[in-house]
């Protein structure tokens, strides 16, 4: 009974946060709604007895992704003239909701055809020790692949977001010009 009420509260926050995210006009309110949704999702991971993923979700999704996003919002999206004017926003949201409903029903039908039930968890389920054992015994190759992916994403983000003019050869030499000789 307690689990059900916790689930109700967390899912309420999750759905309200995500609905607020797609309906606010100002980007900063959307980002804070997304923060609320991610915190509620971390709570759901805890409810599913995955204590390690609860921590990982808070550290990565809330601590890194949303904060990085908020930095970009504060630098670009908080100025009124940068926000696109969307007078027919709720009209488009309504139309796309009608279009998405059949897909959602299909996904739900496919998932419920499993007829699965929760059982009592085994001893030590979800603890960091067992996650680590699994990660470094059976999942080593995906783990290393993810590390390469993160490295390449870091380099790619720097290359995409830099100012191109500065790295062109002539501009580089303009900035580092030697003092001209007097003729």
């Amino acid at each position: 009974m307690l689990e059900n009420s916790i689930f109700a509260i967390l899912s309420l926050f999750l759905v309200l946060g995500s609905l607020g995210m797609i309906s606010f006009k100002h980007t900063i309110f959307s980002a804070f709604s997304f923060l609320l949704a991610m915190l509620a999702l971390a709570g759901l991971f805890a409810l599913l007895e995955n204590s390690f993923l609860f921590l990982a979700q808070i550290m990565v999704s809330v601590g890194a992704v949303v904060v990085l996003g908020l930095m970009v919002v504060i630098s670009l999206g908080s100025i009124e003239k940068n926000i696109p004017d969307e007078p027919y926003k709720f009209y488009w949201i309504g139309i796309s909701t009608i279009l998405v409903i059949p897909l959602a029903l299909l996904i739900y039908k496919a998932l419920t055809s499993l007829h699965a039930h929760f059982q009592e968890t085994k001893e030590g389920y979800g603890e960091l020790k067992y996650v680590g054992e699994k990660l470094f015994a059976e999942w080593v190759l995906p783990f290393e692949a993810v590390s390469v992916l993160l490295l390449s994403a870091m380099v790619g983000a720097i290359v995409i977001a830099r100012k191109e003019e500065y790295f062109k050869k002539e501009n580089y030499f303009d900035d580092h010009k030697q003092p001209e000789d007097t003729k």
Binding site: V15, S18, M21, I22, G77, T97, V100, L103, A104, I107
Partner: peptide, 19 residues
């Protein structure tokens, strides 16, 4: 399912790149 649908609606219907 609900979260995935809300995300899909957001991608389709909003014009703000950040959303």
């Amino acid at each position: 399912t609900l979260l995935f649908s809300i995300g899909l609606v957001g991608v389709v219907s909003r014009r703000n790149l950040f959303i």
